[in-house]
Simulated assay, not measured.
Amino acid sequence: MWVEDWSMQAGCRDTQPDTLFVKGAEQNKAKQVCASCLVRSECLAEALENRIEWGVWGGMTERERRALLRNNPGASWGEVLRAAKAADIRVTV
């Protein structure tokens, strides 16, 4: 089920924001926060649709999101990720 107002259910809602806006190897720790999040797809769609450039969103770093955007320039990420979530498919780079 897709959650429009996802931020209140985010696994990181009680995490310090500085934890998710890190560089290098620290990004792997930030991505672990996302691993079991129930609204990971919604978060990722938000970052992709709004071209958010910094931080880990939906379990992806800014580099990983840029690669998705570059390889799929016309994608409607809300639709793509909504369908993937309904089919229980994980999007990877």
Rank of each mutant, 00 (worst) to 15 (best):
M1N: 02
W2A: 05
W2F: 11
E4K: 15
D5L: 08
D5A: 13
W6G: 08
S7Q: 15
Q9L: 13
Q9I: 00
C12G: 08
Q16T: 15
P17A: 00
T19G: 03
V22D: 00
K23W: 02
A25N: 14
A25F: 00
E26N: 11
E26S: 09
E26C: 01
Q27H: 07
Q27P: 04
N28V: 05
N28H: 00
K29G: 00
K29R: 11
A30D: 02
Q32S: 13
A35E: 10
S36A: 08
C37W: 01
S41T: 08
C43P: 13
L44P: 06
A45N: 13
E46N: 12
A47E: 04
L48N: 07
L48A: 05
E49G: 11
R51N: 12
E53L: 05
E53M: 10
E53N: 09
W54E: 14
G55A: 02
V56L: 06
G58M: 01
G58F: 01
G58D: 01
G59V: 05
E62D: 15
R63K: 15
R63F: 11
E64D: 09
E64W: 07
E64I: 00
R65K: 13
A67W: 07
A67V: 08
R70Y: 12
N71Q: 10
P73C: 03
G74K: 09
G74L: 12
S76A: 11
W77H: 08
V80E: 04
A83W: 03
A83G: 08
A84Y: 10
K85L: 01
A87D: 10
T92I: 15
V93H: 07
V93D: 07
V93E: 06
